[in-house]
Deep mutational scan, measured.
Amino acid sequence: MGFKLLSKLLVYLTASIMAIASPLAFSVDSSGEYPTVSEIPVGEVRLYQIADGVWSHIATQSFDGAVYPSNGLIVRDGDELLLIDTAWGAKNTAALLAEIEKQIGLPVTRAVSTHFHDDRVGGVDVLRAAGVATYASPSTRRLAEVEGNEIPTHSLEGLSSSGDAVRFGPVELFYPGAAHSTDNLIVYVPSASVLYGGCAIYELSRTSAGNVADADLAEWPTSIERIQQHYPEAQFVIPGHGLPGGLDLLKHTTNVVKAHTNRSVVE
């Protein structure tokens, strides 16, 4: 069995187990497998329904001669939608809004960016022009300005110390501490036991640490421990890039980060 097929099978099995364990909360999309990078042309966006009122959005972007996937989250909030992270750029984010209108038909009224990198804030200006209120932590807003990236308009308070959590509509926002970046936030959907790890969490097929220019490698494993301790009931975990899975993604990420750190020390 090929690795790609095995990865998709694991996603399907995880979703099936969740649907059985929580039949009222989960209505997993039966329309197909989780979209992969090879299936999404740059400039297009796919939506994948995880649970009743919960979707991931998947886009792709060219970077350094390669094409990478990027995940975000959409959560229903009454007759409105909360968006977590842009679709990595203005063109993708405009396509995301169009796809949401086509498939869901509810307005996106608020959006949260989970850290300051372009795959999370690139497209904020498109959201703002569409009347979406954009939010991020003060740290993310400051770092985005320093980096020359787009800056969300509103500040999220109460997320300055490791372990801080605040309720934001249908989700809980959690600051686990520094990891992929010093400002990275985690998003949890309690009604569906869905954990969105953003770039602080890796997919299972990833074996290298990737972009760690703004990471705190020493603190990252401790931050992941905080996530595990705060959300032990999480059933569906979405990484910032690639295929979702279960809580095993947290341990896998820790292993990859520690291996990278150990290699760096040896070198």
Rank of each mutant, 00 (worst) to 15 (best):
A218S: 10
V108K: 02
L82P: 04
V146A: 10
Y196D: 01
L13R: 13
D183E: 05
A133R: 13
R76V: 10
S160A: 14
S62G: 10
H117G: 00
L5C: 11
L5R: 13
V112L: 14
Q235C: 05
H154Y: 05
G131R: 08
A213Q: 09
A136F: 03
G53F: 12
S38F: 14
A59L: 13
K91I: 09
L24C: 10
K4D: 06
A111Y: 09
G65Y: 06
P41C: 14
L96V: 13
Y188V: 05
D183K: 00
V187N: 02
Y135T: 00
G89V: 03
A111T: 14
I20Y: 10
E172M: 12
P232G: 11
S38T: 06
G123Q: 03
A178F: 09
R263C: 14
A218I: 06
V28N: 15
N211S: 10
I104W: 02
P107F: 06
A21R: 11
R206W: 08
L250F: 08
Q103K: 12
L159H: 04
R206E: 14
L73D: 02
E80H: 06
V265H: 08
S162G: 13
I17W: 05
T253F: 01
A66D: 09
W220V: 02
V132M: 04
Q49N: 09
H154W: 14
G246P: 05
A215M: 10
R142F: 12
H230A: 14
T86I: 04
T253Q: 01
P170Y: 04
S139W: 07
F236D: 14
S31Y: 05
S62A: 14
L173D: 00
P176T: 01
S30W: 14
P244F: 05
S62T: 08
V212P: 14
V75H: 04
S193A: 10
A90F: 15
S56K: 05
A90C: 05
D248S: 09
L9T: 10
R46M: 14
V257R: 01
A95H: 15
E203W: 02
D183T: 00
I227K: 03
T134Y: 01
V67E: 12
V132T: 12
R128T: 09
S181K: 01
I100F: 03
N211G: 11
A66W: 14
S181Y: 04
S208K: 13
T254R: 10
V189C: 01
G158W: 07
K251D: 06
P244N: 04
G105Q: 11
V212Q: 10
K8L: 07
W88L: 00
A179V: 04
V37G: 06
V166K: 11
S205V: 14
T86V: 05
E33G: 08
E44G: 12
A144Y: 04
E44A: 11
M1Q: 03
S191P: 05
W220R: 02
V171E: 02
A192R: 10
S205M: 11
P69T: 06
E101Y: 08
S27K: 09
L195D: 00
V194K: 03
T60H: 11
S205H: 15
R110S: 06
A234W: 02
L173C: 03
D85C: 00
N184Q: 05
I40H: 07
F168T: 02
I50A: 11
G89F: 02
T222F: 07
E219R: 10
T109Q: 14
V265F: 05
E157S: 13
A178C: 04
H180S: 00
K102D: 15
D119L: 00
L97K: 00
V11N: 06
I151Y: 05
L249D: 01
F3N: 06
R142G: 11
G245S: 06
V54G: 02
Q235A: 06
L217N: 15
A15D: 14
V189D: 03
H57A: 02
A111F: 13
L82I: 11
T222M: 08
A200W: 02
R141P: 04
T182V: 09
S155E: 13
V237W: 02
A213H: 07
V42T: 13
V42W: 15
G240N: 03
I84E: 00
A98R: 11
D216P: 05
F116N: 04
A51R: 09
A218F: 13
S31T: 12
P23Q: 06
A144S: 11
H117I: 01
A215V: 11
A209Y: 10
G240P: 02
T93F: 01
G148K: 08
S7R: 13
M1N: 04
L97M: 05
Y202R: 11
T36R: 09
D164S: 13
I201L: 10
L73I: 11
G163P: 04
S56F: 12
G158R: 10
T36L: 10
A136M: 04
G105Y: 15
A59M: 13
V121D: 01
A209G: 12
L9R: 08
I20G: 07
F236K: 05
S137C: 04
R142Q: 11
A98E: 12
S162A: 14
I100S: 06
A179C: 03
R206F: 14
V67C: 11
L250E: 02
I84W: 00
L47G: 02
Y135G: 00
G89S: 13
V237R: 01
W220E: 01
T86W: 00
S223E: 02
P221I: 14
L24Y: 09
I40Y: 05
G89L: 04
K251E: 07
H154T: 14
T60P: 05
G197L: 03
A98H: 14
A200E: 02
V189A: 06
K91Y: 14
R226C: 03
P244T: 05
H241S: 00
P69L: 11
L243T: 11
A144H: 04
A95W: 06
V42F: 15
V54R: 02
V124A: 08
L83M: 15
V212H: 06
S7F: 15
V37L: 08
R142E: 12
F63C: 12
I227S: 04
P69A: 13
L127D: 03
A213I: 08
L249N: 04
A90W: 12
L243D: 08
E267I: 06
P35I: 06
D64V: 12
W220G: 01
Y231G: 00
I100H: 00
T134M: 03
V132Y: 00
I104G: 00
A165V: 13
K258L: 09
E233L: 13
G122S: 10
V132N: 04
G246Q: 06
G245R: 03
S70Y: 04
R46E: 07
P190N: 07
T261R: 09
L249E: 00
Y196M: 09
R46D: 15
I74A: 13
E225D: 13
L97N: 00
G242Q: 02
E39P: 14
Q228M: 15
I84C: 02
L82V: 13
K251M: 07
S38Y: 08
E233F: 13
R263A: 07
S264A: 14
E233H: 09
K8W: 06
W220Q: 00
A130N: 15
F63S: 08
A209E: 08
S181C: 01
S223N: 03
S30N: 12
I104A: 02
G105A: 15
L127C: 00
D214V: 08
I40G: 11
L13T: 14
S27V: 07
A144N: 04
S162K: 13
D164H: 11
A192W: 06
I201E: 01
T140G: 03
G242R: 02
P239I: 00
N262E: 06
P107C: 04
E101K: 07
L159W: 03
A192I: 05
G246C: 04
L10Y: 09
P244H: 08
C199L: 00
